[in-house]
Design a protein around this nucleic acid. Sequence first.
DNA 1: TGTACATCAGTGAACGCGCGTTCACTGATGTAC
DNA 2: TGTACATCAGTGAACGCGCGTTCACTGATGTAC
Lengths: 243, 243
Amino acid sequence: MSHPEVPAARTARQRARDQITAEIVAAARLRLAEQGPAELSLRAVARDVGMVSSAVYRYFASRDELLTALLVLAYDDLGGAAEAADASVRARGDVAARWKATLRAIRRWAIAHPSDYALLYGSPVPGYAAPQTTIEPAVRVIVVILRIVTEGVRVGAIEPGDAGHLAAAPESAIAGAIGFVRSRELAGDDLPAELIVRTLMAWTTVFGTISFELFGHLVGSVSDPDAYFDLVIERLAREIGFR
Amino acid sequence: MSHPEVPAARTARQRARDQITAEIVAAARLRLAEQGPAELSLRAVARDVGMVSSAVYRYFASRDELLTALLVLAYDDLGGAAEAADASVRARGDVAARWKATLRAIRRWAIAHPSDYALLYGSPVPGYAAPQTTIEPAVRVIVVILRIVTEGVRVGAIEPGDAGHLAAAPESAIAGAIGFVRSRELAGDDLPAELIVRTLMAWTTVFGTISFELFGHLVGSVSDPDAYFDLVIERLAREIGFR
DNA sequence: TGTACATCAGTGAACGCGCGTTCACTGATGTAC
DNA sequence: TGTACATCAGTGAACGCGCGTTCACTGATGTAC
């Protein structure tokens, strides 16, 4: 309280900085809709934001750093959409409804932001390796999905044994295939290995379906993508053991 | 036979042309391993093949046309690998073995040719639309898969009813979601709609799994990708109704 | 078989362009006393 | 409150580079008679 302007002033500069940083990332995101991440032009972004190209270097040390910011933004946006969709279901015990709402929201987001989706789940950018910073935002989606399944088991809405034709593989066989470090951490201890595998598979199928749809591989085979997607996620729910 | 040299001579020139065309495509394919399709440089390809950049225009009217040739080559390579794997199974009635061999071959091909895989199943190239010519080679893989399932039904090795927890959806519901023109054409008439959907889903899951593996989304969740993939395709087979 | 002509592959220079990054600079904003 | 100094954002010129595509050309190969 002794120097009220000092922190406020520092924040003013810092706030301006944050704001312009955000503007740059937003402009880059728009560019991405036309160019693909590998050809993303720092100069074009600078132009869009009304700066000289060299000024961008006050905010990002390199093109790659800007790319990282884009990844984080997109992952967070998608993760937020999934979390919001899950949270929007009032009846928390109705895990089937949460499942459906969440997966639909993921697809809706992908369709609304195809270039962001391609950045995240399409071809990796040659010569660019995403840093550790991106892991946490990247993981948000699967965390939501795993949480729904975990809670489904807890409230008894999921009975994996129901899908009896899929003889639950022995833990050891599954342990050989999937790593438990990350999954256990994300899912909690009460999720049986069998269910982790099924959830991983469902997750893969959902993103595989969205990728196929967005990247044009379903043209000619699927006439109504909305209906097809619903059909897919409903089957996945049954295979996991939703009753 | 009257002028034996004339067709031979014409063929000589034509053969040289075909050969050099193939050399250019091969060089471009190698480049793709480092650059990604959107940044594929016609000049660099020309350099690799020992020509001046303008000479390439004798063979391809534009960069996009070269890209199309690459797509066709890669699709055919993958399709051929899938067909060969299926054909390599002696006991034709053992559709489960054919299923496993074919899907494993697809994954093996993807791992051996990651940049080709990304070209085919990764992000679309901005500003490039694949022409009709690519459809036929693109379709070879799913044709192999559908054929295995179709023959499985014919010899009684697949009984979709077995996967009883998945109540077969009424034809009308499924017809709304998937298009029958292409699928029917590819699969023949004797494949029930329910099985077409399951096969489409399995196909999507397989490519989703491969994409996740190659694009780095399974790092930390799956410790043994070989074992995981086998686990996935075995489950898919059971869900389709392989006994 | 020989000759005149047409086709074609490949050259090399040139076009106009945009790129990422560096650097010395100006002027505004923030800090210490 | 006022002054001297430090920090920082943004400028504009320059670097060296590679790109796709066009064009007039040369020389070799194929064709017709």
